[in-house]
Structures are given as structure tokens and as C-alpha cells.
Design a protein around this nucleic acid. Structure first.
Lengths: 204, 204, 204, 204
DNA sequence: CATGAATGAGTTTTCATTCAT
DNA sequence: GATGAATGAAAACTCATTCAT
């Protein structure tokens, strides 16, 4: 290539138009997500991702122009799913007490993080990219809204703080991969802690 | 690449015997720690670390045979400091109520994480190395012991669970780098949450 | 590397500080120049350049962060040499007739292009980089000045036009690599053509 | 990569037999020619060429087995057009003076290069392919013949030399894309230079 | 004829690590 | 102890070309 600015990566990492294509993309994203969880973002190789999906390296780049873009696509998909879950929760939670909402939120987040473990692995990478910040912001707002509409409603300040805290609480058990007993215990402890906190809040 | 196929680490990095040497090592570790925090372990290069410490790359390798070893040295030093703090707390805490201990622990951990931010950045890297697990284990035991000797003592199971939970709670505010107001609020919220939990525990 | 903008290529493609280094760099540039002439810029591989210089690929990147930078370094060096030659000519040419200057210029350019064939190969690549334009501009000014100070001086407009034309004339024989006889004839023809043109100019 | 290790070109690209087919091919060649001029041969991708012509990449390969073949087809078409023009000039020029012929040749070449800018971009690529040499040879002969039949006829040696020189002269103004005033001036200067040269030749 | 998904060899570039001085 | 030039395996990314539909 004779000079030039540095060609924008891959003309058009287009969304696949055929059914086969969509399956391909799904397989690639699944492969990447699994590897990101197992070895971390940096230690995972694009070649490895393609190989695990049974595709050629070129095929991977056909859909995702960079490794970052691949991570972003996975994260966006996961976040979309979480957002939907939280929306659904919103409706069910209307009028519930804060402690009850927290409990339901634990369920939702627990299921989500179990089903999409890459979400945690990808959302808090060092050298933040900006779009990650946005995603975290959206999640925070959605959770804060949940608490702000409880009965009685939590003050917006506290709702915002809890929106920061609760998702991080849910990640604590995930660090205990090999110790199932302890992990379950920790989860219960966290649940209880949060419930008590919210029940007690009114009296402060 | 985080770990994996580590090339056979070279000869044997001697501990420096001269005063100058010890200062050198300290500067190198400080440089590395700062960079690991700023850009993450993977994104930091050995050359960069040496340069920031005003040393040659060869000098860095004189003391640390691999990048992993450098991380380990930093982490060991940090952990040593934390361990000392916790030991000191142990004495002061003898006979205090669990909630009071938790409060004191928050102070100790808060100071520690502020002073040694690399600790967080290095302790939970993907592709775990084994020695990291050991370090976490030691920390866990020390904190569990703290709660187990409270007045009244916490059941050993709960003490262990809290030993997992509390350090992770302290990391939550650290994710809010740009939002000081929110960060302080979150810290207070966490403190309160834990205190209530421990005060209420007797009644369950 | 965990995300990040796209690390500026190679921390410091520094100028070599030791004698050995300077020789290395010279060898690498010579290798590159030769290959650029033989196969063209695009068809030449960084790996090939390093190999021909008997260096490892990493060594090449130690001094030149990109292929473009390497081309620029070669071109800058060549241009420097040409500039010096033209300066020298400037003094000798003071007060000569335009035709005589043209003749001397032919000699200077001929020698130069023979000695530094990469100059032609690199100065007119498609997808121009800006710094190439500047180099051409400098050359043009220097040659124009030559004609503008002839005796009688050429009008500045014509001097500028000749500054464009003459270097390109000199490149014509270069396209006749295999046909020495014809090449020499063409060079003579061009010399004569330009001489006549300049002698005749006064009478127009 | 310009040439080298060419993968064995596929089957056999048929000449299109239908009207639609011929239009397709024309569009593809036009697209390619435009891109070759804009970004150079190497920097232009086959995918880009197809896209600009509104065709699929597979369609492009239906008619041209390799990128080289595409370049050759364009060049052949352009050369055919030039050849026709030169033939036409041949008739008109019969018996004219060399200077008059040169002048007419300037017109013909100028029109041609303006209309088919890809010709220049493709004829002098590095890593020459052989067929390019042949094309240049044909052009040279045709132009030499023109001068050889002037009145008075030019010696065959000089005719050949001019056949090399004149087409290259015509390319000089093309390098001055942004500077119209200068470009026109340079063209005039070249015209005048050649005219004087040919008028003066008899007297040498 | 037409399509565009798929391929994979080949390129550029990075960086942990070594070693001669 | 200290230096920094040198190394080369490995990673990201590109693109001409193929082929099943």
C-alpha cells in the first residue's frame, strides 16, 4: 500500500445479510466471549478466537475490524440483554419495598452474570475506551430508576449510590470460582446485608 | 500477554546489597506500580518502566527476571504492608464489637488501597498465577481472624465470608475516579450497610 | 495491550548514540534504498530490508518506526546531499549564462540521480504524504534561484518553470536502463535542447 | 504487492458476449482506472474497484482473472486509443516540418493524457511485467515513424530519441495538479523548447 | 452471468528478554 | 552493577483470490 493515512480498518465490517452469516457471527462472538472469560482480553488472540469458532482469521476480520470492536459488540449485546431484564423488572417492581426490589435485582443480576460472564471481564478493562463508560452510565441510570420508584421511594442520591454498589456486590461471588460452598454463602450474606440496610434506612 | 508460555526466566536476580541498589529497586518498583495503575499490567512495557525510573532496561532485568516477577515483588511488598496494618489492628480490635471492627477495617483498607493502588490492579489479573491465590488466602485468613475474635465473636463461617466481602467492598469506590462526591457517598453508604448488618446479625 | 488509542509506534526511534549504531542505521538505509529502487516501495518488505542488511526485523524498527518513516529518512538524506550540491553550484554559477548553468545543473543532477537512485523512486509516490511536497518545493526554489541569478537573469516566472522542468528531464534517461547507447543519446539530446532553448530565450 | 509471486490466475475470463456484459466491463474498467489514478495501483483494492462500479467482487473476477490483468486491459485500451490518434496524426503530418509535427504531437498527447490519466499511472510501475515494455516499444516506434517522415525527415536516431523524450515531456505538467497557472506555463515552455530544438536541428 | 462469504498466506509492528561491552 | 543495542517469536490486520449458491 503506497503510503496513505492508514486505511480505516476493513472497508465495511458489515452486519451479515444471510442466515449463514448471522450464525457465523454468533459463533465468533461466542468463541471470543468464552476466551475473554478464560484468559482475559489481552491474553486472547484473534487467531485463537477464529480457530475456536472453526473460522479463518480473515472471516473474523470480515465482521469485526479490530479486537476492540469485537469486545464492544459482545458487550453491547450483553448489555442489551441486561437492559431488557431490568426493564422487565421495572414493571414487576412498581410499588414494591426497596428491600424487595434489591432482592429481585440480585436475582436478575445473578442470572445475568452467570449467563454472560464476559460482561464482567470486558466492562472494567484498564485503559478505558469511553463507550464502556457510557454503558456503565446507562446501567447505573436504569438501576437508580428502579430504586427511585420503590415504595417508599429512595432519595435520588441513595438510589444512585446503590446503582453503583449493587452490580459490584454481585461480582464478589464470581471471584470464588472453585469454592462453591463459600460462594453461595457469600451471596446469601450479601443479600442479607443489603436487605437489612434497606429496611433500616427509613429509620435513620 | 498475561502470563502463558513464560520464557525460562534468566539467571538469578540478586537482592541488591548496596544502598544505591536498594534505592534503584525502589524507584523501579514505584515506576512499575504507577504505570500498572495508569495503563494496566499488559499495556505497560518493561522499557517504559525502566525509562520512568531513569534506568536502563538492562538494569531493570538485573533485579527482576521477568515482568511477572516484578508484579509479584510489588504485590508482595504491598501485601506485607497490609499484613502489618492488619496485625496492628488485631491488637487494637481485641474485644471490640464486630461493627466497630468493621469500621476500623474500613479505615485501614481505605488508607491502604489509596496508598498502594497497584495492589488492586495486580491482585485480580486474569490468567491467575497461583501465588496471587496464596496472597488472597493470607489476607482472607487475617481478616477472618479479626472478626472471629470480636466480642461477641462472629461464627467462623461468617467471619470467612466477611473476609471475602469487605476487601471487595472497599474497591467499589475506587471505580469512581472522576466523581469525588459520589465516591465519598458510596463509601459512607457501604460503611453504614456493613455496620447495620453486623449490629443486626445477633438477632437473626 | 489492553485497549488504548493505538500506541504511538516505537517509544523512541532514536538516533543511534554509538558508532556501531550509526553503522547499523546506514546499512539499513542502504538496504532499503536498494530494494526500493529494485522493486518499488510497495513491493518491498520490511523483513526483506532487515534481512538484506543482516539485521533482525526488530532492529530495523528500533530506528524506524514505520516503513514511511524509513522512506522519509532516506529521502531526507538524499535531499540534503542534493541541496548541498546545488548550493555549491550556486557559487560556481554566479554570473554564468543560463545555458551554462543548465549544463552544469545537468551534470549535478545526473551525478546525483545516479548515485542516489532511490530519490526518484521515493519522491513521486502516489498517495502523497505532504512532507514529499515540501521536499519538492525546496528543490524547486533552490533551482529557480540558480536561474534567477544567471547573467542575464531569467525572469522569475521562467526560472520557476525551469525548476520544475529540468529535474524531470533528467529522469527521462533513467527509464532506459537496458539501452545504454540510446540512454546516452537521449541525455545529449536533452542537453542540447535545453541549451538552445536558453540561448534563444533572449530573442523572444 | 506489485507483481511478484503471482498466484496462478484462475480459469479463463471470457470476453462478455451480451450488451449488458460489455457495459459491466466498461464500468469496472472505469472504476479501476479512476482509483488507480487517485491512490495508485498498489493502494487500490479489488473490492474497492468492484464496489465503485456497483458490482460484486466475484463479478470483477468474472472478467479479469487478476489485478494485473485488469491493469493490462485498461492500459491496452488506452494504448489502442493513443495508437489510433497517432495513426490519424500520421496522415495529417505527412510532409510537415519536424517542429510542426512536434506541435501537433503535443496536442494529441496532451488530449490523450488528460482523457486517460490512468495510462501514466500504469505504464511505469516498478516491478515491470514485460507487456508494459512492449507497449512502450510500440508507442516509441509509432512516434519515431512520425518524425522520420517529416520534411525534412529527422535522422532515424534522433527520431527514436525524440520518441522517448516527447511522451515524457508531456507528463511533466501532470505533476502540477494544484497549480494550474504554473502547469500551463510549463506546458508552453516545453512546447517552445521543443520547437526551437527542432528548428535549430538542421543547422547543427 | 452474478454474488458475496470465506480463505489464509503474507505484512507490518510490538515487546519481553538477552548479552556484549 | 549498569548499559542499551539487538533479537525474534508472536500478534494484529490486509487483501487478492476462490467457490458454493
Amino acid at each position: 500500500m503506497t503510503s496513505e493515512k492508514a486505511r480505516a480498518p476493513a472497508a465495511n465490517p458489515r452486519a451479515p445479510q444471510q442466515k449463514r452469516g448471522r450464525e457465523r457471527v454468533a459463533a465468533l462472538m461466542a468463541s471470543a466471549a468464552a476466551l475473554f472469560v478464560e484468559k482475559g482480553f489481552d491474553a486472547t488472540t484473534m487467531t485463537e478466537i477464529a480457530a475456536r469458532a472453526g473460522a479463518a482469521i480473515g472471516t473474523l476480520y470480515l465482521f469485526f475490524p479490530t479486537k476492540e470492536a469485537l469486545a464492544q459488540a459482545i458487550l453491547a449485546e450483553n448489555a442489551e440483554s441486561l437492559s431488557t431484564q431490568l426493564d422487565a423488572l421495572q414493571e414487576r417492581a412498581m410499588g414494591l419495598a426497596p428491600a424487595a426490589i434489591a432482592d429481585a435485582l440480585f436475582d436478575v443480576l445473578g442470572d445475568f452474570l452467570t449467563k454472560y460472564p464476559a460482561y464482567s471481564a470486558l466492562l472494567d478493562l484498564p485503559g478505558d475506551e469511553g463507550w464502556r463508560r457510557k454503558m456503565r452510565g446507562r446501567r447505573r441510570e436504569q438501576i437508580a430508576a428502579l430504586f427511585a420508584r420503590a415504595e417508599p421511594p429512595l432519595p435520588s442520591g441513595q438510589a444512585e449510590r446503590l446503582a453503583v454498589i449493587v452490580p459490584q456486590l454481585m461480582r464478589i461471588p464470581l471471584t470464588l470460582l472453585g469454592e462453591k460452598r463459600l460462594r453461595d454463602g457469600v451471596l446469601q450474606e450479601l443479600r442479607l446485608m443489603l436487605a437489612r440496610h434497606l429496611e433500616g434506612s427509613g429509620q435513620v
